[in-house]
Structure formats: structure tokens, C-alpha cells
């Protein structure tokens, strides 16, 4: 009963989530018995590939010559081919844009029950039962897989990276998939160069309507720079066009789970909390002491975000200088 884990890379380096995924897959394999094979698609160098061994993968399948952009059918076929080659019964992927696009197709292709957005190790191995969030984080459900195989997509930042200190053999893998037959035509790509991905960030600095105007984002960006954090915003802010909609965190925006989330001038509507409540630590600054954000927060200041922000930047710099 081996486990296949689909890893993702960015500019030739594995994303942090790939190490989470391999750590998770390794723990799952420990429960069901068997080994972990990692699958990598794209331009990743040998030494980077073999790094996955330290997190519990015993072998790495490397598919060179990845298609330009994501074609859901081609990727589904590549991953299905790797499942067949390894005889794996469990596939682990990330619950992100890519995982959401491909995992459902693989569930059908492999006749493998899909548990999307799992947050913990399985409760039991046979039958496979896993915990996931439902009702946008208001509850959890135990999903029982009824099929022989399973596809698990792991909610981000829900599993600690664990180094096992092992090593992995790297093998070049030809899935025998007609990449040229991809039906998706990429017409244009716009990338934000050099910007930390919101979904990958350990610390996120977010602003809401209490920031009063798009002109006031300077200190949020400065704090983000000091803490190597990503910036985010609430829905009214992206609706107003103060910030791009990619920054909108909340039920209908991005769902994130950083280690530390700062909410400046965000009242904390239930839809916003649905997108951020999995953060390990939430700090809220709001003028309204009754704002619902304080029910979700771990630390709070009743005050004007525009006044607190500069002081916070000064204090953090001072604390760091010590």
C-alpha cells in the first residue's frame, strides 16, 4: 500500500507546501504500511529533487519536459500513469489551484474516493477515515473512503514539516502521455515577479475598510517587508478596487492558514473569518471593541490601525535589533 505524492515547484525550487505534502504522505504511509514515491513535473535539478528524501520519500519520479501551463487532462494522465507505475493506493496532493483542478478528475479516473482539504492524519487506516473542514470551517467532518484507492488533498499549513533524514533515489519517468495533445491554449501569462505568494506566506498582513483609503497601504507594505510577509485584504477592499482581487481573503476569496495573521481595520464578517480562521495566531486591530474579529483573534488592540501600524513597525524593528 504505497503512497504517491504530487509535489509542486516554483522557478525550479520546491514550494514549502511540497515538503508539507511529502511529510504528510510519509506519515500516512507509516499508518497504512508502504513507501512514499514523490512525483515532480517540470524543470527541477537533481539535487533539489533528492531533497525530498529528507522528508520521507524513498523515490522520486521526475517528468521532464512539462507542458507549458496547466492542462488538466494532460496532468491527470501523467499522475494516473505514475499511480499505475508505483501501484500506489493513496494519492496526496495540495488543496490549491492545481489540486482543485486535477484531484477531482483523478478521483474519477482512478475510481478513488476524494477527501478534499484534509486537515490531519487519517483517524483510521482501514477503512481510511480522514478529517476535513466543512461549512467553511464552522465544523469538521470525518470522511470515510469507500473505494480501494483514495485521493487526499491536504489543506495548506495544516501539517508540520517533519525531517526524517532519509534519502531518495531519483528516476526519470516517461508517463507516455501525448503532451502535444493538450487542449488548453495559453494565450497570455501575467506573473507578479519576486512577490511572495499569499498561499505560501508564513506571515500575512491584511487590511480592511478601517484603512480608509488605498493611499494608506504604505505601512502595511512596510510591515510586510520587515516580516517577509505577504499582503492581503478583506472583500470590501478588493470590491472597492483599493487592492487587487488576488489579495482578497475570505470565503469567496483565498483561504489561507499562515502562522501569523494581522487584521488591520477588518471587522471580521463571518465570510472573512472563513478564509483566515485556520491561521495559528491572529492579531486584530480595530476601533470597534465589539467587532467580531476579536472573537476569532488571539491578541487584540482596540484602536486606529493607522496609528498602531507605525508604532508596531518601530517596536518590531527594535525587538529584532536586540
Amino acid at each position: 500500500m504505497s503512497v504517491l505524492v504530487y509535489t509542486e515547484n516554483w522557478d525550479g525550487k520546491f514550494k514549502k507546501l511540497s515538503y508539507e505534502l511529502v511529510s504528510y504522505a510519509s506519515a500516512v504511509a507509516g499508518m497504512i504500511g508502504g513507501s512514499v514515491t514523490a512525483l515532480s513535473i517540470g524543470n527541477v535539478q537533481q539535487d533539489e529533487l533528492s531533497k525530498l528524501g529528507a522528508y520521507g520519500a524513498t523515490s522520486v519520479l521526475n517528468v521532464d519536459g512539462a507542458p507549458e501551463g496547466l492542462d488538466n487532462q494532460v496532468y491527470t494522465s501523467i499522475i494516473a500513469a505514475a499511480m499505475e507505475k508505483t501501484g500506489a493506493k493513496v494519492l496526496v496532493m495540495a488543496q490549491n489551484n492545481t489540486g482543485k483542478a486535477i484531484a477531482p478528475r483523478l478521483s474519477v479516473r482512478l475510481k478513488a474516493g476524494l477527501a478534499a482539504g484534509v486537515t490531519a492524519l487519517p483517524e483510521s487506516a482501514n477503512p481510511l477515515v480522514v478529517l476535513k473542514k466543512v461549512f467553511s470551517g464552522k465544523a469538521f467532518a470525518k470522511v470515510k473512503i469507500l473505494s480501494d484507492s483514495a485521493v487526499l488533498t491536504l489543506a495548506q499549513n495544516s501539517f508540520e514539516i517533519a525531517e526524517t533524514g532519509g534519502s531518495a533515489s531519483v528516476e526519470s519517468f516517461d508517463p507516455g502521455v501525448d503532451v502535444a495533445g493538450a487542449k488548453t491554449t495559453i494565450k497570455d501569462v501575467q506573473k507578479q515577479e519576486g512577490k511572495l505568494l499569499l498561499s505560501d506566506a508564513e506571515v500575512v498582513i491584511s487590511g480592511g475598510r478601517g484603512m480608509k483609503s488605498s493611499d494608506n497601504w504604505g505601512p502595511i507594505e512596510e510591515l510586510a517587508e520587515v516580516l517577509e510577509a505577504a499582503t492581503a485584504c478583506s472583500r470590501p477592499v478588493s470590491d472597492e478596487g483599493w487592492r487587487p482581487h488576488e489579495e482578497h481573503t475570505g470565503q469567496t476569496g483565498k483561504i489561507i492558514a499562515p502562522n501569523l495573521y494581522f487584521a488591520f481595520g477588518i471587522s471580521g464578517a463571518i465570510q472573512h473569518l472563513a478564509g483566515v480562521s485556520s491561521s495559528k495566531c491572529i492579531v486584530a486591530v480595530n476601533t470597534d471593541k465589539d467587532a467580531p474579529i476579536f472573537e476569532a483573534a488571539d491578541y487584540g488592540i482596540v484602536g486606529d490601525a493607522l496609528k498602531v501600524l507605525p508604532e508596531l513597525i518601530t517596536e518590531i524593528k527594535a525587538a529584532r535589533a536586540q
Binding site: W10, G69, N97, K187, Q190, Q192
Partner: peptide, 9 residues
Amino acid sequence: IDGGREEVS
């Protein structure tokens, strides 16, 4: 897409 957007058909 992560870190950006694409136009596709």
C-alpha cells in the same frame, strides 16, 4: 495561477 494569471482557451 500561483502568483499571477493566464488567459487561456
